[in-house]
Write a protein that binds this DNA or RNA. Structure first.
Length: 422
RNA sequence: GGAGAGGUGGCCGAGUGGCCGAAGGCGCUCCCCUGCUAAGGGAGUAUGGGGGAAUACUCCAUCGAGGGUUCGAAUCCCUCCCUCUCCGCCA
């Protein structure tokens, strides 16, 4: 969420900035509401002050054995007024809050303009897209032919957008998770964490999935307030919710492997073939909690940490910076890594690395004490390192041969018990 | 699932209706003393919001969350959440 002070001081600026996202912020409506709020708050607080003073009076008078009936009479009038004002104030504050919660983050100045993914800007490329002297197959053809990728059984037991992996592919997915976690913990300085895969709505609010994106989540039936996580970002970033840490403890760097669950509401008909877009997929996620002045450097580091995985696997990719219209609700700036998929002859997203600056920290009240002893919001970042299901696809498609065998990338072989070809 | 105890400031911990935003201790910051990796003395030390030029002052809110009783609630009542102990069950 944005700083309400900034909204009050310079709503025009916020409105202009949000226009880059094609988000319309109604300045007049906001200012009117805030004016109402201010009046209601002033009145309410004056009445509260009066109530407090009179109550104190009563206490003292009683102690001296004086009669307090007259003052108590006056109080009932004050209390009536107070109740009315409190109700009004709560209502206005609720309205302001609703507006505030719907406002996306301000974009960093370096984010390019543009409406949708067509306007994302490529910033770098690594490797050469694989060339084959035969017709490259996609992962579905490769996987189903050997009986290792089974959408039919998954559909029977769960429905569409699920998969069953068997034998070597199940093993390779596990190997990829292990491989990624090893690199991030041993070489990049992240602490591995194991976290709940069900979270409460406060956590989803903290990272920005609620209230606006409830329909993208899976909610658990029953008494309890629990939702399946759409990404490990939710439980891990929420470590910080309501916490104050000392500046010395920053940066905090966590990496977690979790399954991720997404309803994919609104993506009907999109990527219906194969494992690209599933309701459930594995992901290794990096999260950093840093000081404000360090967050944009940290974003570059997270991006390179994600790149390392693809480089070690020897798979071509490119990096794009998302344009204004494609950048997520909470993010100030996002890089996507797009991996080359020979089966589609396209680069497809395999990682998303974002700097949320203080947007999530405000929502979850996550602060640190700086060198001067002042409290400040931390900055939060996250990046996929990487989406494991899509990495599996990328390995399959880029390392296939004419017979439909899949060669295991050298870096992954130790994690596959030395097996070189599937 | 059964029985009980509890959730207070960075931490520990007192506080059962007004003089409590909250004793005391620890920690931390500054000053004094001390010729030494110690001890002692003094002062300060929650967060958010309103007014204000103000890190002066002042008002409001906050003692797990939300309701209620009351002129007045950290303190009484209700609901919920969480933690701990014992028993049962269990991957």
């Amino acid at each position: 969420m944005l700083d309400i002070k900034m909204l009050r001081e310079d709503p025009q600026y916020v409105a202009e900035q949000l226009k880059r996202r094609k988000f319309e912020f109604d300045v007049d409506q906001f200012q009117q509401l805030d004016q109402t709020r201010k009046e209601a708050q002033t009145r309410t607080e004056a009445l509260q002050a009066e109530r407090n003073a009179k109550s104190k009076e009563i206490g003292q008078a009683k102690a001296q054995g004086k009669d307090v009936q007259a003052v108590i009479q006056q109080m009932s009038v004050v209390n009536d007024k107070l109740k009315k004002n409190e109700v009004l104030l709560a209502d206005v504050q609720q309205q302001l809050q609703d507006i505030l919660y719907q406002l996306p983050n301000l974009l960093d100045a370096s984010v390019p303009n543009g409406l949708d993914e067509a306007n994302n800007v490529e910033v770098s490329r690594w490797g050469e897209p694989s060339e084959f002297d035969f017709e490259a197959q996609d992962h579905v053809a490769l996987g189903e032919k050997r009986g290792w990728m089974d959408f039919k059984t998954a559909a029977k037991i769960s429905g569409s957008r699920f998969v069953v992996l068997r034998g070597p592919l199940a093993r390779m997915q596990r190997a990829l998770i292990d491989f990624m976690l090893d690199i991030h913990t041993k070489e990049h300085g992240y602490t591995e964490v194991y976290v709940p895969n069900l979270v409460n709505s406060d956590s989803l609010f903290g990272t920005g999935q609620l209230p606006k994106f409830a329909e993208d989540q899976f909610r658990v039936m029953g008494e309890q307030d629990l939702w399946l996580i759409p990404t490990a970002e939710v439980p891990v970033t929420n470590f910080m919710r309501g916490e104050v840490v000392s500046g010395k403890e920053l940066p905090l760097k966590f990496v977690a492997h979790t399954p991720c669950f997404r309803s994919e509401a609104g993506s009907y008909g999109k990527d219906t073939r194969g494992m690209i877009r599933q309701h459930q997929f594995e992901k290794v996620e990096m999260v950093q909690i840093v000081k404000p002045e360090e967050s944009f450097d940290a974003l570059e580091v997270i991006r390179s940490n994600a790149e390392t995985i693809l480089q070690r696997l020897g798979i071509a990719y490119r990096v794009v910076v998302l344009c204004a219209g494609d950048t997520g609700f909470c993010s100030a700036k996002t890089y996507d890594l797009e991996v080359w998929l020979p089966g589609q002859k396209k680069y497809r997203e395999i990682s998303s690395c974002s700097n949320l600056v203080d947007f999530q920290a405000r929502r979850m009240d996550a602060k640190y004490r700086d060198a001067d002893g002042h409290l400040q919001y931390v900055h939060t970042l996250n990046g996929s390192g990487l989406a494991v299901g899509r990495t599996l696809i990328a390995v399959m498609e880029n390392y296939q041969d004419a017979e439909g065998h899949i060669h295991v990338p050298e870096a992954l072989q130790p994690y596959m018990g030395g097996v070189k070809v599937l």
